[in-house]
């Protein structure tokens, strides 16, 4: 169980993480989504005790990470794939990690097998492809067989094969009953395996919702409407409680259905040129959600 309460990180004037509060319940896979620079990595770094919060707390199993006795037994983390020394072999990288938490030496062989790096174990990390580095990072995260995993952009920069592999791997971790928090700037990638979504923009929490509820709320009711009086209609729809964004001459309306938009237009005598609703992808929903806050923040 991960508990984040009022977590804030400021770098001078810049607010990287702004009063974040959320829980990651035990045994769920939670996707931590946001554009690059939204504050995902900073949040994970504070969870791991690498960065000191300006305010608030981040706890794992009720304790601050730095207070964990043998942290790799409780939490596995994948931060960035370059965090292994290029001149060290994969096996030696895992050997020192195992030693640091008094983990049995046979775990090194086991995790190497698990991620399919057995044959590359004696090679220096320098010669590894990005996909192999990512696997090594996941092997390191699993070394202590931890119940909680924090994975920062595990599919970033991977080729199709690597993405397929890590997707299957994430599903496997979930099936083991582990608690997984996985960050990504690609919503479609992780949504397929996640139970729950946390969406951040400009350091703030935009959504904290189960995946099915998010789909129902954000992908179903989207209306596209074109009118000669876009500003007027936008004002009317906003007053009706809808969310409205502009899309090259047309308006995109969320939160109400097409019939409702038509009724509002008719009631106020706004001539419509086009009205329709269309389904859209999760990726679109995500982009529009984060775009909206970007405007709000500007």
């Amino acid at each position: 169980m991960i508990e984040v309460r009022g977590l804030t990180k400021r770098y001078g004037e810049v607010v990287a993480v702004d009063d974040l509060t959320f829980d990651v319940p035990e045994g769920t896979v939670t996707a931590f989504l946001g554009r690059n620079g939204a504050g995902k990595s900073t949040t994970l770094r504070m969870l791991l005790g690498l960065d000191r919060p300006t305010a608030g707390t981040a706890r794992i199993g009720g304790r601050a990470y730095a207070d964990l006795e043998r942290p790799l037994r409780s939490v596995g983390a994948l931060l960035d794939s370059s965090a292994a020394h290029p001149a060290r072999t994969a096996r030696d990288h895992l050997r020192w990690l195992a030693a640091s938490n008094a983990l049995p030496a046979h775990r090194v062989r086991e995790v190497l097998d698990l991620v399919g790096l057995r044959s590359a174990a004696g090679r220096r990390v320098r010669g590894f492809s990005l996909g192999m580095r990512q696997r090594l990072g996941i092997a390191a995260a699993l070394l202590g067989d931890p119940p909680v995993l924090l994975l920062d952009e595990p599919v970033n920069g991977l080729d199709a094969e690597g993405i397929r592999w890590s997707r299957a791997f994430l599903r496997g971790l979930a099936a083991d009953g582990r608690t997984v928090l996985v960050s990504s700037h690609l919503m479609g990638e992780v949504a397929q395996t996640a139970d729950h979504l946390l969406v951040v923009g400009s350091g703030r929490l935009l959504a904290d919702t189960p995946l099915p509820a998010f789909l129902a709320e954000h992908t179903a009711r989207r209306v596209r409407v074109r009118t000669a009086q876009p500003d007027r209609l936008r004002g009317l729809l906003l007053a009706a409680g809808a969310t409205v964004t502009r899309d090259d001459g047309a308006l995109r309306v969320f939160g109400v259905d097409a019939a409702h938009v038509g009724a509002v237009a008719a009631r106020h005598g706004v001539p419509l040129l086009e009205l329709g609703s269309d389904g859209r992808s999760l990726e679109d929903a995500f982009l529009e959600l984060t775009a909206a806050t970007r405007e709000a923040a500007a």
Partner: peptide, 18 residues
């Protein structure tokens, strides 16, 4: 400083937070 150049310091401090 080599740990910082290679970013291995992150891995090190995650393994040994004290």
């Amino acid at each position: 400083a080599g740990e910082y150049a290679r970013k291995t310091v992150h891995t090190s401090l995650v393994a040994v937070p004290r």
